[in-house]
Amino acid sequence: MAYRHLNVEQTNAPASLSRRDFLRLHVSEGKRVLELSCERLFMRYQDAQSGVGRRQVSNHDDVMPWAQQPTGFDTPTLDELFAELERQLAEADELCVLEPDWLNGGAFGREVGARVEAFERRGGHVAFGSFSPPSVSNGIMES
């Protein structure tokens, strides 16, 4: 039972599954299928737009006036967020857009919609579906 020191960056994810925030990538019949959770992307979009995490000072009620200001969270900017989406789309063959009702209207829908259309124009296959987060029932989580 030899143990290594935990070093996440050196470990390899299972080849069939990769998950990045609002995206889930798996390989099916040799094709790289990307699931896009619009709900989760919208949350990150909201955080990126507000920038609140980047300027967060403290979440605690014990603030020391003499202490230095902390650095805040690793909240991406809007540009970084959509650049990541584009990068992931560039490597996918199929795209499954989950909870598409989050794309209704507004700047968020236009931004995401434009990238989905671009993916389709490049020959990618797009499907729409509803995402079912793991449900917990009677204490048993069904993954």
Binding site: Y3, D62, M64, A67, Q68, Q69, T71
Partner: peptide, 27 residues
């Protein structure tokens, strides 16, 4: 599995920072 300081050296930042701030990565 069994885990000790010899197998895992994971910083626990939330409990050690100077100045009482838990979320200052610079600290």
């Amino acid at each position: 599995a069994v885990m000790t300081h010899e197998t895992h050296k994971i910083p626990y930042g939330s409990g050690s920072i100077s100045g009482g701030r838990q979320y200052s990565d610079a600290h």
